[in-house]
């Protein structure tokens, strides 16, 4: 009973229509023992509201639509404005190599490409997620 369950809010950023990847990753995170709240398509404001209401430990953003450079950092910024700076933000999808340093500088903990093994994502979450509920 007293174990801590990691709660992840997963969303597709903006109007991106590709859902297969984010749903597959959500299912694998569930199989790793996490509780995944799936939002579908949402913009940063709605994603951050949902993360607050759900008490999320992690926010996972999926994007294949090229909007990552603006909307990803926006999520981190809004979380910080709401005092939720201990929520870990990760991204996945098709994101050009050269954009990754800027995303990390903006506070995105990790960026995963389409070939990432799920174990790698799970390990990253476990290593970086806040320790207390």
């Amino acid at each position: 009973m007293e174990r801590k369950v990691v709660k992840v809010v997963m969303a597709k950023l903006g109007l991106d229509i590709h859902w297969r990847g984010v749903v597959a990753v959500s299912r694998l995170l569930r199989d790793a023992g996490m509780e995944v709240v799936y939002l579908g398509n949402q913009f940063p404001e709605a994603i951050v509201n949902a993360a607050i209401q759900e008490g999320a430990d992690v926010v996972g953003l999926s994007t294949l639509g090229g909007n990552h450079a603006v909307l990803g950092p926006k999520v981190v910024q809004l979380l910080r404005e709401k005092g939720m700076d201990d929520v870990m933000v990760i991204m996945g999808g098709v994101i050009p190599e050269e954009d990754i340093p800027a995303l990390k500088a903006a506070g995105i903990v990790e960026v995963f490409g389409p070939e990432t093994a799920i174990d790698e994502i799970v390990a990253c979450i476990n290593a970086n997620v806040r320790q207390v509920g």
Partner: peptide, 27 residues
């Protein structure tokens, strides 16, 4: 696994930005 996939918010997507509504998903 003890994990869960909580998908109800997808059906209430346009409530995410509604200040009068607080949604919490539980497993």
């Amino acid at each position: 696994s003890g994990g869960a996939f909580l998908g109800d918010r997808v059906r209430m997507a346009n409530l995410n930005s509604e200040p009068g509504v607080f949604i919490r998903s539980l497993a």
